[in-house]
């Protein structure tokens, strides 16, 4: 039995761009450009090739200690293996949902999971109120309790068309299709230009699309 030369291992969790490109709206070159971005994000505090929560917060807020309910939810959804870090494959597959060419259905489903804070399979009134309060706190906006209750009640009654006190996936989908701006933040135009945003990589790209 001979020895096989070990394949070059980039970092734990690294996956081949061809594999990721086949599963996402990205081309191979775009996945390679995303690897450049990933390397930058994953080495900003701990240089281990994995994005830790603090690194994610640092990238989003320029502050590693800034806690935010929504950023936490995004991090948790990106961390598919739920091991406390975002690996390269998880990063690319999750960002694929934010690609302008990704199916709208995927964006709607992702937003649903994002807002289903307690993983019950429904968006409940308490969850909606918790998110509104978090947003107001984040934005230093002050509204009276009455007004907050009215906003939550009104939105909930519009979305909960079955009137059972919770928003299911079907109701959520219908609500978003009626109000498409709700998933505007689920599309990142940058992703179409990722190889331009990181031009240094294009010069060293090994694969031509």
């Amino acid at each position: 039995m001979g020895c096989y030369p070990s394949k070059q291992v980039k970092t734990p969790g690294y996956e081949e761009p061809t594999v990721l490109a086949a599963e996402t709206p990205f081309t191979v070159s775009e996945v390679e450009a995303l690897y450049e971005l990933f390397k930058k994000l994953s080495s900003s505090i701990i240089d281990d090739g994995l994005i830790h929560k603090e690194e994610f917060q640092l990238a989003l807020f320029k502050n590693r200690n800034k806690r935010n309910l929504f950023a936490d939810r995004i991090f948790d959804l990106f961390d598919v293996k739920r091991n406390g870090v975002i690996e390269f494959g998880e990063f690319v597959r999750s960002l694929g949902i934010f690609h302008p060419n990704a199916p709208v259905e995927d964006k709607i489903a992702f937003a649903f999971r994002l807002y289903d804070l307690r993983h019950t399979g429904f968006i409940e009134r308490e969850e909606l109120k918790e998110m509104v309060l978090a947003l107001l706190h984040e934005s230093d906006l002050i509204l009276s309790d009455d007004v907050i209750e009215q906003i939550v009640d009104k939105t909930f009654s519009d979305a909960d068309t079955k009137g059972d006190g919770k928003i299911d996936q079907e109701e959520w989908k219908a609500f978003v299709l009626k109000h498409p701006s709700l998933i505007k933040n689920m599309t990142l135009p940058y992703l179409k230009d990722i190889t331009i945003v990181f031009p240094s990589f294009v010069l060293s790209s090994e694969v031509e699309d």
Partner: peptide, 26 residues
Amino acid sequence: TAPVTMNAFELISTSQGLNLSSLFEK
């Protein structure tokens, strides 16, 4: 009054924590 007609999900979607474009800033 204006706030009562506000869509709560619309409000939430403006969170900075959901604006991933910051990840691409050099």
